[in-house]
Amino acid sequence: MSLTAAFYIVLSAIITNNYVLSKFLGICPFLGVSKKLDNAMGMSVAVIIVMVVATAVTWPIQTYLLDPNGIGYMQTIVFILVIAALVQMIEIFLKKYIPALHKALGIYLPLITTNCAVLGVCVLNIDNEYNFLQSILNSFGSGVGFTVAMFLFAGVRSKIETNDYPEAFKGIASTLVAASITSLCFLGFSGMLEKIFGM
């Protein structure tokens, strides 16, 4: 795989196919944990790590274990259990060896098991028939895309937090409208990567 193809996969996962703002994956943390920039970034780093590790584990499982034995339909069950176990292991590992990082990310890790973006990226890598390296790149790009969306939205939320909303739009309703406006600006970049990378 050429370097441009690699960049193309990563950048399109960040910009044109942003997981949160165009594929609607990981909306819960996007709405729930974006109120403070620190929390948003902590969550995002945890998501990037888990996405990449989960892909590194689930891709070989699908390719070398499930598919050759004709039990590809077990994908959903196996993947979700693997992800759940993996998150536990990452947590234990961080706690023991990198306590500082565990302290920063620890609270976000358990929430990630049920983050649909993680299971989503693992399944989509298989659906798109990416090879191992492409899958890893796509997962990394998706995680970064999640981070970008969280970063942008955390700024917006800090600005509109103290607004005097109309009664009906208090709370989650206005947050969703803000997300709608935020997702608009990502549409402007459509077609850009194809032109830059000549795809």
Partner: peptide
Amino acid sequence: APGGFFVFGCLIALVN
């Protein structure tokens, strides 16, 4: 995508 967020926000506002 923006329409999805917007309609959802409006429905929740309606319920509110």
